[in-house]
Computed example of a mutant assay.
Amino acid sequence: MTDPVLHRYDNRQDLAEALATGVAAVLAGAIATRGSATLAVSGGSTPKLFLEHLGRAEIDWSQVEVTLVDERWVPETSERSNLSLVRRHLMQGPAEKAHLLGFYTGHDTPEEAIEELRHRYCRLSRPFDVAVLGMGTDGHTASFFPGAGNLDELLHPQGHDEVAAVHAPGAGEPRITLTLPMLVDARFLALHIEGEEKRTVLDAALAGSDVSEMPVRAILGATRAEPLNVFWAP
Rank of each mutant, 00 (worst) to 15 (best):
G149I: 06
N150S: 10
N150L: 12
N150R: 13
N150T: 14
D152S: 15
E153K: 13
E153R: 15
L154G: 02
L155T: 12
L155P: 02
H156T: 14
P157A: 08
P157H: 09
Q158N: 13
H160N: 13
H160K: 15
D161I: 00
D161W: 04
E162T: 11
E162N: 11
E162C: 12
V163M: 00
A164Q: 14
A164S: 13
A165K: 00
A165P: 12
A165M: 03
A165I: 00
V166Q: 06
H167T: 14
H167C: 07
H167G: 01
A168L: 05
A168M: 07
G170E: 15
A171N: 01
A171F: 06
E173R: 09
E173A: 14
E173I: 02
E173Q: 15
P174K: 10
P174C: 10
R175A: 05
R175C: 08
T177V: 02
T177K: 07
T177P: 08
T179I: 06
L180W: 01
L180M: 12
L180Q: 11
L180Y: 06
P181A: 09
P181D: 08
P181F: 06
P181H: 05
M182Q: 14
L183C: 08
L183E: 09
V184R: 06
D185F: 04
D185S: 12
A186E: 10
A186C: 09
R187S: 12
R187W: 04
F188G: 00
F188V: 05
L191W: 01
L191D: 05
L191C: 05
L191I: 06
L191H: 07
H192F: 09
I193E: 05
I193N: 04
I193M: 03
E194I: 10
E194H: 07
E194P: 02
E196A: 12
E196H: 07
E196N: 10
E196D: 15
E196S: 11
E196Q: 11
K198P: 03
R199P: 01
R199I: 02
R199V: 01
R199N: 04
T200D: 12
V201G: 05
V201C: 03
L202Q: 01
L202V: 03
A205W: 02
A205F: 01
A205C: 11
L206W: 07
L206P: 02
A207G: 06
A207S: 14
G208Q: 12
G208E: 14
S209V: 10
D210K: 02
V211W: 07
V211H: 04
E213A: 11
M214L: 12
M214H: 03
P215F: 00
P215Q: 09
P215C: 08
V216T: 02
V216G: 00
V216H: 00
R217E: 00
R217F: 03
A218E: 01
A218R: 07
I219E: 05
L220W: 07
L220K: 07
L220R: 04
L220F: 04
G221W: 01
G221H: 13
A222I: 03
A222N: 05
R224P: 07
R224G: 06
A225C: 11
A225Y: 08
E226R: 15
E226W: 08
E226N: 15
E226M: 11
P227W: 09
P227R: 11
P227K: 11
L228M: 11
L228E: 10
L228W: 09
N229Y: 09
N229Q: 13
